[in-house]
C-alpha cells in the first residue's frame, strides 16, 4: 500500500506542488501544505477506491487542508470582485505582448474561487468533473466560475498590457496591436 500511494502521489508531484504554491504563495508554506496533504492522504488511502480518479482525490485533500489552515488562521480568501464579465475584444493579442510569468502573476491575483478554477482547468488541464471533486461543488458551478475567472483575467491582462504602453485595439474594428 505504501509503495502504491507513493507512486501515485509522485506521478502528480509537479502538479500538486504548483497548485500548493499558488495557494500558499511561498515555498515553505507549499512544502508544509504538501506534507499535511500526504499525511491525510495516507491516513485516508484505505478509503480510496482503486480505479477512480486519484488526481481529483488527492487534490481535494490538498484544497481541504488549505481551507482548514486558512480558517484556523482567521483569513478570508474568498473575496469576489464586482467586475463586469463582458469580454474585451483582444484576448488573444495580449498573449503576444506579455510574458508567461506576467500571465501567471495576473492569475495569482484573481480572487478565489476563480483563481483555483482557472489554474486547475487551464494549467493542470483537469476535466470539470475533477475540478468539481477538488473544489467540492457542482460541475455547472465549475463552468460558471471558469467563465467569470477567464473574464476577470482577460481584463487584468489587458490592463497590464496597457500599463506597459501597448496599444491594444479592438479586433472587430480591424485594428492591430
Amino acid at each position: 500500500m505504501k509503495e502504491r500511494f507513493e507512486s501515485l502521489v509522485e506521478g502528480h508531484l509537479d502538479s500538486l506542488h504548483r497548485f500548493a504554491l499558488s495557494l500558499t504563495r511561498d515555498r515553505d508554506g507549499a512544502r508544509d501544505l504538501l506534507h499535511d496533504t500526504f499525511v491525510k492522504g495516507f491516513e485516508g488511502y484505505g478509503s480510496f477506491v482503486a480505479g477512480t480518479n486519484f488526481r481529483a482525490w488527492i487534490f481535494a485533500i490538498l484544497v481541504n487542508t488549505f481551507r482548514t489552515r486558512v480558517r484556523d488562521l482567521g483569513r478570508h480568501p474568498h473575496v469576489a470582485l464586482d467586475e463586469s464579465n463582458e469580454p474585451t475584444e483582444d484576448g488573444d493579442v495580449v498573449f503576444e505582448l506579455l510574458e508567461g510569468s506576467e500571465i501567471l502573476e495576473a492569475i495569482e491575483e484573481l480572487p478565489e474561487p476563480y483563481r483555483s478554477t482557472v489554474l486547475l482547468v487551464d494549467r493542470e488541464e483537469m476535466r470539470y468533473a475533477e475540478v468539481a471533486v477538488v473544489m467540492d461543488c457542482p460541475t455547472g458551478t465549475v463552468m460558471s466560475r471558469l467563465h467569470r475567472g477567464r473574464g476577470l483575467l482577460r481584463r487584468r491582462l489587458r490592463g497590464l498590457a496597457l500599463e506597459r504602453g501597448f496599444q491594444v485595439t479592438d479586433r472587430r474594428d480591424g485594428g492591430n496591436a
Binding site: 512544502r31 492569475i107 494549467r123
Partner: peptide
C-alpha cells in the same frame, strides 16, 4: 474570442517543474 483567449492562455501559461533539490526534499517528506 473566448476560445482564442482560452487557447492562448493554455499555450502561454508556464508549468514549472520542481527543481531537483526541492523534489528530493518533498519526496523525502512523502
Amino acid at each position: 474570442r473566448e476560445r482564442d483567449f482560452a487557447r492562448g492562455l493554455r499555450d502561454r501559461l508556464p508549468r514549472p517543474i520542481l527543481p531537483a533539490l526541492e523534489r528530493e526534499r518533498i519526496l523525502s517528506d512523502l
